Simulated scan of single mutants.
Amino acid sequence: MRGITDTVKHLIIINALFFVATSLYGDQMYQWFSLWFPKNENFGLWQILSHMFMHGGFMHILFNMYALFAFGSPLERMWGRNKFLFFYFSAGIGAALIHTGVNYYYFNEGMQVLMDSGMAKGQIMEIVSNGRYSPDWYNLASKNTIDNFLSAYSTPAVGASGAIYGVLVAFGMSYPNSELFLMFIPVPVKAKYFIPVLIGLDLFSGVTGYSIFGDGIAHFAHVGGALFGFIMMWYWKKNQFNNKRWN
């Protein structure tokens, strides 16, 4: 395996510094730099970028940074620094937009149910903005609808996973026959098979709410990063993108 490239190394260092700072100033860091729902008072536009450097725990950052090293370095060697950075951050921003769009759907769905029951919008917002809810709400709609409504408003998104999924797609399209050795699969699997299956599992989990990887995962952010990564790769390939413009 060839060594780590400069840009990937610097991204990993920045992520590590954010992780250390979060360990020291957890609540404040999460409040400032996580990606909150736009109607939440903690939301700031900078969070569309800053959330990509935040992580929820050691295993979270470990897996993301290993994937960035393993799959990002070959892409940086192929593309160069500027094109890689453009791709990486575009995929991450795309993931944030898809994640936020899905949260808007969940939030509006729950809000409409509660308003149809006779509650005023301002009353509902006052309750959820204080981190509260009424158990009676679960009598008005399915548990999934209310849970998604509350989570959309009050649960921030963190992690580089959206950008990483874009990188995975780019790697799979650039090196489709590369064999990946995975600790939970005893035989090597070609990238062109493994990566679509991984994305498919995230899409399944996002739609059904059932996750084989555990709770608290922003599945639609993963799918969004993969989608934006695919769109960029498709566009660049179709238009025979001129690499000199990135120098």
Rank of each mutant, 00 (worst) to 15 (best):
E179Q: 14
V167R: 04
P186S: 00
P156M: 00
D147K: 10
P188E: 13
F181N: 10
M173D: 07
I199G: 03
V169L: 05
S151E: 09
L198M: 10
F194E: 02
A170H: 04
G162E: 04
S161D: 10
I164M: 15
S154M: 12
P196C: 04
I185A: 01
L203C: 01
V189A: 02
Y193W: 09
F149T: 11
N148Q: 00
A152H: 07
F184I: 12
D147R: 15
A152C: 06
V158H: 05
A152P: 00
P156G: 01
V169G: 03
L203M: 05
I164W: 11
M173A: 08
S174N: 05
F171G: 09
I195M: 05
Y175R: 05
L201F: 06
N177F: 09
G172T: 15
V158A: 06
D202K: 08
L180A: 03
A152W: 07
P176G: 08
N177G: 08
F149I: 09
L203N: 00
E179N: 13
F149S: 12
P176N: 08
L201P: 07
P186A: 00
L203E: 04
V187I: 14
V169T: 00
F171K: 14
A157Y: 15
A152R: 05
V197H: 04
G166W: 02
S154D: 14
G172R: 11
Y153W: 06
S161I: 15
D202E: 14
T155D: 09
L168H: 02
N177P: 12
L168R: 03
I195C: 03
Y175K: 04
S178H: 12
F194D: 02
G162C: 04
I164Q: 10
Y153A: 05
L150E: 01
V187N: 10
K192N: 13
Y193C: 09
S161R: 14
N148I: 01
I146R: 00
K192F: 14
N148E: 02
F171E: 10
S161Q: 14
N177A: 13
G162N: 06
Y153S: 00
P188K: 01
L182M: 11
G166Q: 03
M183L: 08
S151F: 14
P188F: 06
A163K: 10
G166D: 04
P156T: 05
F184V: 12
K192Q: 13
Y193I: 13
L168D: 02
N177T: 11
L203P: 01
L182G: 06
V158G: 00
S154T: 14
F194Q: 00
D202Y: 13
A160Y: 15
L198N: 09
I195Q: 03
G162D: 06
S154P: 15
V169I: 02
K190V: 11
V197S: 09
V187F: 13
N148D: 05
A152Q: 04
G162T: 06
D147W: 08
P188A: 04
N177C: 09
A160Q: 15
M183S: 13
F149M: 10
P176C: 08
G172E: 15
V167T: 01
F184D: 15
G172F: 12
L203W: 00
